[in-house]
């Protein structure tokens, strides 16, 4: 599919300008690509390589290290159900069975309408709230078959749109760092002035 759109190229340049070296922007740009298309396309990888001065293979190598970057289309909602110890003890496995029945797919696949992708997850760091799941990395705690069904109904009807953006959007509000607060395109060894956020006020004597 697609390279970054014109608007996103603008964002990309802003992101790149925050770092001393363009390559440092690789991960944020991968997020940007995933936000644009719901997953990271090969064209986007190539485009990011061009923007940061790396080969496509280098970007691919970096990107595939991280599980949260997807390289095939995923549903609008990625549902991760925890299967690690606490959740397993509290019914995580049964919850997954239920989810598979409800959505009509096996874990690791996507509903034909492209709405839901179901995945196993390892510990989501909320053991006290077991069993847990995440929808596009937004938590749901102590999930029962009933609350799961209600969640799916709400998502399908668009009732949770304001809370849970489509897969790929890390945050709806993008941080803008004014140029003077960025490190800028100055490699550390060449920097004459420390950036403002690095200047430490001198301790009172």
């Amino acid at each position: 599919m697609s390279r970054l759109t014109e608007d996103n190229v603008r964002v990309a340049h802003e992101i790149i300008s925050r770092y001393p070296r363009p390559r440092s922007a690789t991960i944020p740009l991968l997020h940007l690509a995933q936000q644009q298309d719901g997953y990271v396309t090969n064209d986007a990888i190539r485009h990011i390589g061009e923007l940061v001065g790396a080969t496509s293979a280098e970007v691919l190598g970096t990107a595939t290290f991280y599980e949260m970057f997807k390289f095939e289309p995923v549903g609008k909602y990625l549902v991760n159900i925890c299967r690690t110890m606490s959740c397993a003890l509290m019914g995580g496995e049964e919850l997954m069975h239920h989810a598979e029945h409800r959505l009509g797919i096996k874990a690791g696949s996507t509903t034909p309408d492209g709405m839901f992708t179901l995945e196993h997850a390892e510990c989501q760091a909320a053991c006290t709230e077991a069993p847990t799941l995440q929808v596009n990395y937004r938590y749901r705690f102590r999930v029962t078959p009933e609350t799961f069904d209600a969640l799916i109904d709400d998502l399908a009807a668009g009732r949770l749109d304001s809370e849970i953006p489509a897969h790929g959007t890390v945050a709806r509000i993008r941080q803008h760092i004014p140029a003077e607060r960025g490190v800028g395109a100055v490699p550390p060894e060449d920097a004459t002035n420390a950036p403002s956020w690095m200047t430490v006020a001198e301790a009172p004597k």
Binding site: N42, I45, R46, A54, T55, S56, A57, E58, L60, G61, T64, F65
Partner: peptide
């Protein structure tokens, strides 16, 4: 740099784009 390690852990492998 046209070959790279991709993926990680047990599935790490050398690949091209």
């Amino acid at each position: 740099a046209l070959i790279q390690f991709t993926s990680r852990g047990n599935t790490t492998q050398v690949t091209t784009f």
